[in-house]
Design a protein around this nucleic acid. Structure first.
Length: 188
DNA sequence: AACTGGATCGTCT
DNA sequence: GACGATCCAGTTG
């Protein structure tokens, strides 16, 4: 079933683990979500920590919409907005649909390299700022519920603040992660 | 396997 | 004017 906007209209720490195992497609291209991170306004690593700005306004908009931003001047990252000021960063997929399109966009055929990181994933799915603020329950997006998964939690990747907060969620044993889980803090 | 530096630019200090 | 929710190629061990 397609995840309704109401699915996202609750605490980001509830939504993030529930997304592991879900299917994300953009124009029919994508796969199973195997890695996410949670961010909220109480969190110094979050874009929303210092309040709303032109860049992050989608993060304060309605739940169930996309927040996309450019990072390091080069890459784009996709988030699912939850309660105001909170969002789930989608970090990795297990490719399922549209392999050829993803391979063409990424310039590689190795399946494990297609969506194993937020920038790679955005590139493979053809995402950029044009999708910022779009609803997740309408074209080109399609987010479908998946079966419950075994989940491991731990510290988030690539941040300098908030390292003590274990808000990274990955599918246990997945071979499609951006990085292996270094300091797991729990399982679900 | 682990670590390095370079690419490149919008955002906020 | 510095830096970042990243990726890649290159080097070293």
């Amino acid at each position: 079933m397609i995840l309704p906007r109401a699915f996202f209209d609750r605490p980001v720490l509830d939504v993030a683990p529930a997304l592991i195992g879900a299917t994300l497609l953009v124009d029919g291209v994508g796969g199973e979500i195997v890695e996410v991170e949670a961010y909220d306004e109480t969190d110094p690593a979050s874009h929303s920590f210092r309040g709303m700005t032109p860049r992050n306004q989608a993060m304060f908009g309605p739940a169930g919409h996309a927040y996309l931003y450019k990072i390091y001047g080069i890459h784009f990252c996709l988030n699912f907005v939850c309660l105001p000021g909170s969002a789930v960063l989608i970090r990795a997929l297990r490719p399922i649909a549209g392999l050829e399109r993803m391979q063409a966009r990424r310039g590689t055929v190795a399946e494990k390299q297609l969506c194993s990181g937020p920038g790679k994933l955005a590139q493979a799915l053809g995402l950029d700022l044009r999708q910022n603020g779009l609803p997740l329950d309408a074209a080109p997006f399609e987010v479908r519920m998946g079966a419950a998964q075994e989940i491991v939690t731990g510290p988030r990747i690539g941040i300098t603040k908030g390292l003590e907060t274990p808000w990274r969620f990955v599918a246990k044993g997945s071979g499609f992660l951006s990085k292996r889980m270094e300091n797991p803090s729990g399982a679900m």
